[in-house]
Structure formats: structure tokens, C-alpha cells
């Protein structure tokens, strides 16, 4: 049964130096507060996994937490580049970062395989592109029934998945709704999981189309109101588009970023 913890306790207990960590949330419900807590606790050598390493991974990369990045699209949505990510890849600042990149379909299927207890997933993907030339976790598999050659991608099984959801009850059952991305698969694929939530309630009343993660597949739940800001939590607050715009000049400039980092870690 999931433990109810503070964010600091959850990160301290579940996220260790050198871990493979997946913070998921597809535009909606991005666990930004948890990412900043990982920065505050000074984790190093992480393999960061995420389909869309947007602002939250730009911050972790700039802060020097990451040794590797596994991803499929790295940008500031609707604004432009992630400059801390680019500085790491192009100039090895603040340190070198190894990258492993995929398509969205490939990453989604890697989580599905991980959640399903399978070593790989099958899809029609990557064909004719240069992506597979640089990525050892893409290969081919021959269909035993038809002989067709299909694309195979290796399962992803992170040490820990971190997600944000709207609500949990006191037993750690988690409920989220709206665009729920690949979070269910990420939690089920991971060895451990930390879920931050907007609200802890006595009783989770059923909601149509909600994704529910029973408390017995979640390691810990932390009550972190506005924990997805500047992304949004449907039913609680809207996406803070101004923050995404304001991030651009901070991210572009090492000094401006250092100042931001001082404020976050103060």
C-alpha cells in the first residue's frame, strides 16, 4: 500500500544517485515540483527518461543532475528550444550528456512492454529513418505467423517513475483524468513510483474516463498542490503559458539560469 509522505521524504526515499528516473506527464500533469525537489536534493548521474523533456528536464539537465537522457522530443512546447538541453548536447555544459532518442510511438511502446513484463514491443515504426542508426534499443523482429519484418523496441523499466495526478485517497489510490499520456504505463513499468497529487481526499468518487492506479502498485504519494505548475491540472488550474515564454530567456543564458537555480535551491 502506498505510503503518504512529504515530497522531500518521497524523493529522498525513492530517487537515488545513478538511478534511471522517468518523470512523465504529456503536457498535462507534468511533475515539475518533484523535478525541482530532485534538484534541491542534489541527485547526480541520473538517466532521465521522458517522452517530452520540456522545461522540467531543461531544469534538471542545467542543474547537472543528468548523465543520460532517453527521450523522443525535447523542446519548449509552443516557444522553441530547450537551451539547457542544447547547451549540454552541443557544448557539454554543465557536463557531457549521453542521449538515446526515439520516436513517440517507440517510447510509448517501450513503456507498454515494460509494464507488460515483456522484453520488447513490436510496432511499425522508424522505417527508413536515421534514428535507429544511433539507437541500440531499436531493432527488427520477424513475425512468426506471416514472416513480415517489423520494428522491435526494447522495454523500458525505470528504477523509479514520478508522476503528478489530480487526487489520491488516504490509502494511496490515485485518480487522474483528462490527457493522461503514458503515466499508467510508466508507473507499471517502474520498480518504484512516486505520485504527487493536487488533493488527498477521504473517498475517491468515481469519475468517467479516469485512470485509477491502485495504491498497491504505487510506492508513495505526496500531497503537492500546484505540483504540475507551469503545466496544468485539469479541474484545478490552467497551463501557465507565460511561464513557458519567460523560461526562454532564463534557459538561454547560463548566468540567468544559475540565478534561477540559486533561488530554487535556497
Amino acid at each position: 500500500m502506498a505510503e503518504l509522505v512529504s515530497l522531500a521524504e518521497g524523493v529522498a526515499e525513492l530517487v537515488h544517485d545513478g538511478d534511471t528516473v522517468a518523470l512523465e506527464g504529456f503536457t498535462h500533469l507534468i511533475p515539475v515540483a518533484a523535478g525541482q525537489e530532485i534538484i534541491r536534493q542534489g541527485r547526480r548521474g541520473l538517466t532521465l527518461v521522458r517522452m517530452t523533456p520540456d522545461i522540467v528536464y531543461d531544469q534538471l539537465i542545467g542543474a547537472g543532475c543528468a548523465a543520460r537522457l532517453v527521450f523522443s522530443w525535447g523542446g519548449n512546447p509552443g516557444v522553441g528550444s530547450l537551451h539547457r538541453f542544447r547547451d549540454a548536447v552541443e557544448n557539454a555544459w554543465p557536463g557531457p550528456i549521453e542521449i538515446e532518442e526515439h520516436s513517440h510511438a517507440g517510447m510509448a511502446n517501450r513503456y507498454v512492454a515494460g509494464a507488460s513484463g515483456l522484453p520488447f514491443a513490436v510496432l511499425r515504426g522508424y522505417v527508413g529513418t536515421d534514428i535507429a542508426k544511433h539507437t541500440t534499443t531499436v531493432s527488427t523482429v520477424t513475425c512468426p505467423f506471416t514472416g513480415e519484418v517489423l520494428t522491435a523496441v526494447a522495454a523500458l523499466n525505470p528504477d523509479v517513475a514520478v508522476i503528478h495526478a489530480q487526487r489520491a485517497d488516504r490509502r494511496g489510490n490515485v485518480q487522474m483524468w483528462g490527457i493522461t499520456g503514458v503515466q499508467k504505463e510508466a508507473v507499471l513499468a517502474a520498480r518504484r513510483s512516486l505520485v504527487t497529487v493536487e488533493e488527498i481526499v477521504d473517498e475517491l468518487d468515481p469519475r468517467p474516463d479516469a485512470v485509477v492506479l491502485p495504491g498497491w502498485v504505487v510506492s508513495a504519494v505526496a500531497h503537492v498542490p500546484r505540483g504540475a505548475h507551469p503545466s496544468y491540472a485539469q479541474g484545478y488550474y490552467d497551463r501557465d503559458n507565460d511561464y513557458y515564454q519567460a523560461w526562454d530567456p532564463i534557459s538561454r543564458d547560463r548566468e540567468a539560469f544559475a540565478k534561477w537555480l540559486d533561488e530554487v535551491t535556497a
Partner: peptide, 10 residues
């Protein structure tokens, strides 16, 4: 360094 593939290849 550009953003990468996203959903586009498929």
C-alpha cells in the same frame, strides 16, 4: 540540436 522526432516518423 533540434527537438527530435516526436510523433512525426510514424
Amino acid at each position: 540540436r533540434l527537438p527530435g522526432a516526436g510523433g512525426a516518423p510514424e
